[in-house]
Design a protein around this nucleic acid. Structure first.
Lengths: 172, 172
DNA sequence: CTTTTTAATCAGGTCCCCCTGACTAAAAAT
DNA sequence: ATTTTTAGTCAGGGGGACCTGATTAAAAAG
């Protein structure tokens, strides 16, 4: 039987972590407002970029399917990324209905550095703590994968295949 | 000298955690789409709610100051919360320029349950791991507070006073 | 008793995520 | 060869986080 008090304590820390990190990011962000280094969430444009980083050259339809987005939303995000020079669109030669999306060098670099960036706050942890954190997060993530899988197996497949693996490849 | 490989590993897990949690929330969220149980971030309307949960009856100006928002943004968020029946607005009797914001019962309940909610994924952790996680997050949060404090001491005060304490009270 | 400061408001804007509906062009199926 | 399906597009919309500018009402200061 897990100790409820300990759970609550950890839960509180986690929520606090979310809030403090958000605030810290906001501050840093506004300091050098020249570049927008928003930390690439798994959402909208970020979703697209991360997915392409693992599987470049997908069609818009493919992206939409994998990411559980409508074709229109996908088009919107892709177009925004094109404007930011992070991806390119080109018509498929084999099927001229299709639009193939490719990462630009900048796009790839962005996806990589964003993903590979080690936040400064990890510097305060000892090696032992880092190991512990990794172990714990592995368990937590597994649990969340299960949750997703239970709620929506189809989606789980796509998600797992695309981004989870991407992250794993990068770090292990 | 902290092991860079370990840091990278942990960083990857953290990013993965962010993405998986986001996806999981999204799914749960859409299942019972009747209520919108968005997980109350420290942003916009959520910011206001959390702050009021710790200090009810603030004026809009006070809220704006504490949360580093313009009066207009604050008004917008407050009005949205009023529409959702989470807070009420009333003119101050002592200074009729001021509008005092109060949490409704629903608002308080929302703030509390959202904050006090223990995510299911913590069930998979042992007592030892929960302790480890708490210790680690405490260090991380402290580090982030430092970052905020260094970048903007004024803001740090406000932030610390309002929400950090709120969370701490709740869980300890 | 004016002038100035303060708390709020309305109006309008930027950008983000994401969706439905309506419509074209190209490929696949009949 | 015609119908149907598929991939994308445009138009428009809802909600969210913020912001600047202009204006009003009330309190504080001169």
């Amino acid at each position: 039987m897990p100790n409820l008090a300990k759970q609550r304590k950890a839960a509180g820390k986690l929520i606090e972590f979310g809030m403090v990190r958000h605030t810290a990011e906001e501050l840093i962000h506004r300091e050098h407002a020249d570049k927008d280094e928003h930390p690439l969430r798994f959402q909208g444009q970020g979703k697209i970029l991360l997915t392409l980083a693992q599987a470049d050259g997908l069609s818009q339809k493919e992206l939409a399917t994998r990411l559980n987005l409508t074709a229109q939303s996908t088009a919107e995000f892709v177009n925004k990324l094109v404007k930011k020079q992070l991806v390119t669109k080109e018509k498929s030669t084999t099927d001229r209905r299709k639009t193939i999306i490719h990462l630009t060098d900048l796009g790839r670099a962005t996806a990589e550095t964003e993903t590979a960036k080690v936040p400064e706050f990890l510097n305060t942890l000892t090696d032992t703590e880092l190991d512990q954190l990794t172990t714990i997060l592995t368990k937590i993530n597994t649990s969340l994968y299960d949750e997703i899988n239970t709620a929506n197996p189809t989606r789980f497949d796509k998600f797992q295949q695309t981004v989870a693996n991407h992250i794993r490849d990068w770090f292990l």
